[in-house]
Amino acid sequence: MEADLTLHVNGQPHAVRVDPATPLLYVLRNQLALNGPKFGCGLQQCGACMVVLNGNLAWPSCQLPVSEVLHMTVTTLEGLTRPDGSLHPLQQAFIDEQVPQCGYCLNGMVMCGAALLAQDAKPNEEEIRNSLYRVLCRCSVHSRAIKAIKRASEV
């Protein structure tokens, strides 16, 4: 059942040969060797696998069949870093605020934050909380994440 597919990930076309029903997450991690999106639940409940579709929609990739994103662009955490290696303001803000503890949830927070900033340059705290609703963090660094997103929106 495998098929040759082309994905548009982080500004590049990628040819992969996979079962089209495979959730995007597995393809990103295993075929494309990307570390950003993480497996947390596979149930769209925790946000660890978050990617940004078409530049402004944060969406969990763990149940999204790869065949459904062939005509979309996919951005992962790796894709926020600029080609010259410099960081997206949000990545920088997560360093400056020393947000993560274990950091396993960081991908979800940053990708949701990036989609939010793409839509609304100056979100308030409620909007930030709402946009991160799908992301779970057990180390509980929530308040730092909120601060970091605010900080990034101010640069």
Binding site: L34, N35, G36, K38, F39, T76, L77, E78, T81, L87, Q91, Q92, F94, I95, Q98, V99, P100, G103, Y104, L106, N107, V110
Partner: peptide, 13 residues
Amino acid sequence: IERMVRAEEWYVQ
């Protein structure tokens, strides 16, 4: 933390 935000290899996963 910089490795994490750059999505470099860090976790056993």
